[in-house]
Amino acid sequence: MKALVSVKRVVDFNVRIQVKPDGSGVVTDGIKHAMNPFDEIAMEEAVRLKEKGKVTEIVAITIGGAKCEETLRTALAFGADRAIHVKEEGEVQPLTAARALAAVVRKEAPQIVLLGKQAIDDDNNQTPQMLAALLDCAQATFASKVEVDGGKAKVTREIDAGLETLEIDLPAVISTDLRLNEPRYLKLPDIMKAKKKPLEAVTLADLGVQAAAPVKHVKTVNPPVRGKGVVVKTVDDLLAALKQKGLVS
């Protein structure tokens, strides 16, 4: 069974981002980027499924500019067998990403499509659900446990009320939550090997995909800053400060 894993290049999660003074966005030039953390988890899950003999081939995919090739190389170092780079230098919003992924799914016919639950740049949390809608297949979002058995999967999902378990027929789309697994550290030999693995480049036009009408970003600003607080020395002082705010009697 084939697995398709989508990986997005985003600003590294440790970076404290800066809003551009002219409000046109956040500073990304010269800033450390990495694979979206949820996509690392998706890659790791695919590799584990392959190690268990459930998956036979892993194809990694990204939609984005030239720099995204490094993210695909990371995916190949994780253990993807080959990669597809859908080249698009402009901004790629979720509906467009989902359309591109759907076109590739129709061609590649994977049984499992793994994506991160959200890209930590725009925090949209949309693409997997949109993809499942376009494919008219099952979706299991926010997965914290995935068991594949024949043509079905049992997926435990992290939801507000606790943990929900679904049984879904394959092919299906699964989006990963933080506790699904802990991605491995990449070893140098794997990084070297990844350089020789096949990477195919296509365009949205090659796939017959039309970019969706984008949601326009009018202006980006800093969030409001909180007022400066006080530091107290003792529990009694803390209680006094809380009393003053009317929070304890």
Binding site: Q93, P94, L95, A98, D123, N124, N125, Q126, T127, P128, Q129, M130, L131, A132, A133, L134, Q139, T141, F142, R157, E158, I159, D160, A212, A213, P214, V215
Partner: peptide, 22 residues
């Protein structure tokens, strides 16, 4: 909520429109 986040992008894609999250 996790309910709305799970559901609404699927609705948006069926309607062929983007979604505004949060």
């Amino acid at each position: 909520s996790t309910f709305g986040k799970d559901l609404m992008p699927r609705v948006a894609a069926l309607l062929g429109v983007p979604q505004v999250s949060d």
